[in-house]
Design a protein around this nucleic acid. Sequence first.
DNA 1: CAACCCATGTAATGGGTTACATGATTAC
DNA 2: GTAATCATGTAACCCATTACATGGGTTG
Lengths: 193, 193
Amino acid sequence: MTELSKPAYVVLGMIATGRRSGYAMSRTAKDATRHFWATSDGQIYPQLKSLSEDGYITGERESHGGRERVVYSLTPKGREALNEWMSSAAKAHFEMRDEGLLKLFFAEELSVDQLRAQIDIMRRRHQRAIEHLEDLRPRAGDMACAHLTLRYGLDLHAFSVEWYDRLDAELAERPPDERAGDALRAIDAAPVG
Amino acid sequence: MTELSKPAYVVLGMIATGRRSGYAMSRTAKDATRHFWATSDGQIYPQLKSLSEDGYITGERESHGGRERVVYSLTPKGREALNEWMSSAAKAHFEMRDEGLLKLFFAEELSVDQLRAQIDIMRRRHQRAIEHLEDLRPRAGDMACAHLTLRYGLDLHAFSVEWYDRLDAELAERPPDERAGDALRAIDAAPVG
DNA sequence: CAACCCATGTAATGGGTTACATGATTAC
DNA sequence: GTAATCATGTAACCCATTACATGGGTTG
């Protein structure tokens, strides 16, 4: 039982939760899981092929109103691999990439004005993310787990909006041409308390 | 003025904030920026070479207590590229990869018990991240911006710990062998409200 | 009859990590 | 003397995205 790749578990999980064609998986990946785990078509389709060859899943051609598609099912081996992964306590992959934070990290020499401009950009970015997730909500239908992860995303971005709001409020008290590093030191580098 | 790559801006920012040797950049990348923007040695050193060739930075050999190292400075061209990026309102790259959330997304058919076990793993993961960031704090020294991004990380993980705590508290009220999807629907899929 | 969605795939490219490789200096 | 830190780099590999390619069905 060697470990499978991450995209493999995505595919197994998709099948287990009723997304049984490659296209359905692709849709769900774009709609529902993208905001915490991106998966592209270039991963899904090759994965379906190799998981079939290795006996984790089986595909059946189905004609669905004239259109042809392949509908996959988990084999016992696939079910077991999924269960093992789902209940594993092994350290799960966690990563963040936030170009905005990178800019904040380098902001030492900016003016308070310039720093506040960047913070505003970030605040609005999280605000837009919230609006985007709200739009996705109806598409989650009755999948309770989809709503759960959506809720997490919404709450997380709301946290960020508030965090940047509070930081901005503290910076608003400082002279606009002060050095950002000095201003932050002055407000104790702990504006969010 | 074609746009530079992300690792290029990392290097420019590092120089501007006083990390002037490849090794110093590598250290800061591991210590301070890793939790929101990973950069490896395999990116830093080739980048130093190509940014030198393209006239964004200049390197000077320096002997520093017998040891040799190369210390870089920004050229006017490099300074301009950095300023442009720092003040740009263009959509900044933002990405999250959370394998734990992926498992939650597929948890529909698990038991409440199994779901709570996964939530516990995630809660502890964020707790450990907080401890790790606390350990890094002394190394930020007097860099106000380093403390700022550290603060964001700490607050973000604290938010997550609380979020999972609240979710777990609600699930604790449900029978342990209930289907996770049903339990979540029952608590209205909005446990964090 | 055009645009869009369903449906499936491949190839080129780009980005990033890991492992490897080397060697000097300093602290214990 | 030996382990850790300073210091710099390269090559192989893995992973993922993008663009391309194809074609049938549905809706306005």
